[in-house]
Amino acid sequence: MRPQMLTTVLRAAARPTLAATRVAPALTRPASGHAQETFEQFTDRYVSFFQNAEDLFEVQRGLNNCFAHDLVPAPTVIEAAVRAARRVNDYSTAVRIFEGIKEKVENKQQYQAYLDELKGLRQELGISIKEELYGSS
């Protein structure tokens, strides 16, 4: 009787307690929760990227990334990108940015809205869009 009791007690002591083993790691993230970037955060990120871009390669890399998303970049992003193109002295990239908008928007009205919105910038820097260079297309 006594040895039996002793073994039960010992076994219970040797068994690892659940509370002790189940310690959640300090740095954890639920598997279902992804970091979601809002449109405003995206805009801010790319505006600051283009403002800090130092050379043509970086500007073009940023443009590639920026236009790769399923959205049309906000006019502020476009303005920052065009100014970055001006800073690195590449006219063709500035023209290409407007061509990229034309690809990304859904219809001609949206493209026209972008052109109207950025008209001041185009006149300030003297950028002709591709349609102006090559006639209508």
Binding site: D90, Y91, S92, T93, V95, R96, S128, K130, L133, Y134
Partner: peptide, 9 residues
Amino acid sequence: KKAAYYVAF
């Protein structure tokens, strides 16, 4: 302008 654009893109 056209030349710059053509050469690049």
